[in-house]
Every structure is written in C-alpha cells, then in structure tokens.
Design a protein around this nucleic acid. Structure first.
Lengths: 195, 195
DNA sequence: GTCTATAGCGTGATAGAC
DNA sequence: GTCTATCACGCTATAGAC
C-alpha cells in the first residue's frame, strides 16, 4: 500500500470511472480534460489509455452502464396486480432510483449530444425502452377503465419530465424525505391520470 | 453590398449573437470555439472582441436576454379574473413561449453551470422570479378553494418540469399542433390541481 | 501498468496595420 | 471595424523506457 508507482489495476479502472462521472457531472464532458481525470485518480494522463480507448468511450460506458442498471432494477421490481398499483410502483421506483444517482442522471440528460451518433442511438434506444414501460402501464389502465389520460404518449412524456425534475431541486438535508416527496408526487400523478 | 472587408457594425453584432446561440445550442458552450463562431458569422476571430469582452459575456448576454424577454412577455399577458383561468393562461403561455425559442430554452437549462458564479446568481434569480408567479397562482387557488395541491412549492416544480419537457419531444411537423399540445397539457394540469 | 516525453493541433485573447 | 499575426498555453492520443 501507499505505492506511488506500479500496478494498481484492480483499483484504477473503477476509480477512473468514478472520477469521470464526478467531473463530467460537475463541469461537463467537453470542459473536462483527460489530464484532469488523471489528476483526480492520481495517475498520469497516459495511464488512462490502458483502461479506455478514448475519452468518448469513457462517456459512453458511463451512460450505457447507467441505462443497463436502470432497466435491470426496474425489471427486478415486483409487478403489482392492477395498473394503478403498477403506476404507483413506477412513480416511487423512478424517484428513488434517480435520487440515489444524481450525477449519473445529470450526465444522462446533459451529455447526450456529446455522444457519437452510433453511441447516441444505443442510449436513446434504451431510454425509449424504459419510457415504453410507463406507456404500457398507462394503456393497461386505459383499457381497463381505471385511467382517463387524454393521450398516453404525452402523459408518458409529462410524467417522466415531472418525476425526473425532482433531481433538479431535491436536497438531502431539505424539508422533505424521499418518501415524503414520493408520496406527494404519487398523489399528483394519481390525480392527473385517474378516472 | 457584397463587401468582404470593412465595417458592418449594424449587422455583425446581432449575427454574432445568433451564431453563438445556434452553436452553443447544438454543440454546447465548452465545445464551441470563438473561431467557429467567427467562421459562422463570416469574420475573423479577433473581430468578435469588438462586440464582446470575452466568450463568457456572450453566453451570459444570451441567457440574460432570454430571461428578460420571458419575464416581459409574461407581464404583458392579460391577467384573468380567477386562479383557474390564470393557471390556464400560464400553461398555454409557457408552452407557446418555450416552443417558439427551442435553442434559447435549451442553453438556458444546459449551460447554467458554465456561467461564472456572479452571472449564475443573476440568471437563477430571474428564473426563481418566473417560477414564483406560478406558485402565486397556485396559492391563490388554494386559499380560494378551487385548487387542492398537496404542496404548492412541489407542484410548481412538477408543473414547470412537465411543461418545459414539451421542448424535448415536440417536432414542428409532428402529429399535434402547439394548440393541441396545449389543450392536452392544460387538461392534465387541471386534473392535477383541481379540487 | 505506469511513467515521461512529445507530436500535432486548437484554444482564448491581444497588438498593431489598414 | 476588420484584418493578420502571434503569445502562451492546453488538448487528445501515442511511443517507448521501466
């Protein structure tokens, strides 16, 4: 331990990802240099290229990893019996998951335009997949007669924007806990879509 | 006309702002160079500094001008008699105003972190001022008894996020007109806050 | 796997000619 | 008001020693 040179491979890889996530979230992808990331990790800039082919791959891996985690976590949630209960589960899941990863959420929304076109298409596909699960819930509730949204596609956009927006104002030491926020947002959601 | 050198001062100033707006919106502030802006305008990089002290001032002027315009436009709207009608006016105004200026909205949300602290505080103050007009409407409706939001502050965040989110998916040649979108969003808003 | 050194280029901003 | 030229520096990515 306390080595200042030599092999750290088991540590360095994850630490590069953590530093990149933190710095990209704080300053933006374009404003962060490979030298800054290296300094943050405690290695020289050249050493980063043992772990990533280039800066673009670093960004893509962060976003791809985040989207995979999001979809896996939602898939792992139990599926309640009624559309109303499924919608409540989605609202609470979305808020909880997003508030637990503010930096990953931030770059997932802010840095999309810095992805190469191929990478962008992949991330955009995964995001659409996630959003379509909400649209599915809304459609189920519509056909079943428990919801009355004017347009499921627009209601999906509206709800996702509303829920994700929590990340822009929520503070850990604030007036409300995650559960209290979730209660209020579920209340508003419910009123918005209920018959 | 068709001069390639000499004074164009009446034209160049606005054209620099337009180019900066377009390029910042497309690639991001940090990723755009003064040379790119100059090329877009058709002058050399040095000439830009006759119009702006530096790149930062260019960004700040765009955001400040946009916020001033937003507040002035809302102030110029008529004020309906009841909270419900005022809320409807706000919803329709917000969507219409934002959809008419997608690039300015985009950089207003994406480039805040690239503002110097002093500039950030000014823009943030103006934004809070705009949002507080919505909170005021919600409070009026609450005391009057026509609304039933659980928390006016959170309802403000939720509504602003929901309404601004339209900019992320709306396309001019899409399925719905601005008025149709506004109708649907007003319907959802109404259901969300109505008693 | 990390280091040092460097290639090749782009950056924001300024000086001075016209 | 715009141009050309330039300063001083930072950038990504690579090469080769260890």
């Amino acid at each position: 331990m306390a080595r200042t040179q030599g092999s750290h491979s088991a540590q360095t890889g994850p630490r590069i990802r953590e530093a990149a996530l933190r710095l990209f979230a704080k300053h933006g992808y374009a404003a962060v240099s490979m030298r800054q990331i290296a300094r943050d990790v405690g290695v020289q800039a050249g050493a980063l290229y043992n772990y990533t082919p280039d800066k673009q791959a670093l960004l893509f891996d962060l976003l791809k990893g985040h989207m995979d985690e999001l979809l896996a976590a939602w898939k792992a949630e139990p599926t309640p019996a009624t559309p109303t209960l499924r919608l409540e589960a989605f609202v609470r899941f979305h808020i909880r998951f997003h508030l637990a990863r503010p930096q990953a959420i931030f770059i997932s929304y802010m840095e999309l335009r810095n992805l190469d076109p191929d990478n962008f298409a992949i991330i955009e596909g995964l995001r659409k997949r996630y959003e379509s699960t909400l649209t599915g819930i809304l459609r189920d509730g519509l056909t079943e007669g428990s919801f009355a949204v004017p347009d499921p596609a627009l209601a999906t956009y509206a709800l996702i924007a509303m829920l994700t927006g929590v990340n822009t104002w929520y503070r850990d030491k604030g007036r409300l806990s995650v559960d209290e926020v979730s209660d209020i947002y579920w209340d508003m959601t419910c009123r918005m879509v209920a018959r």
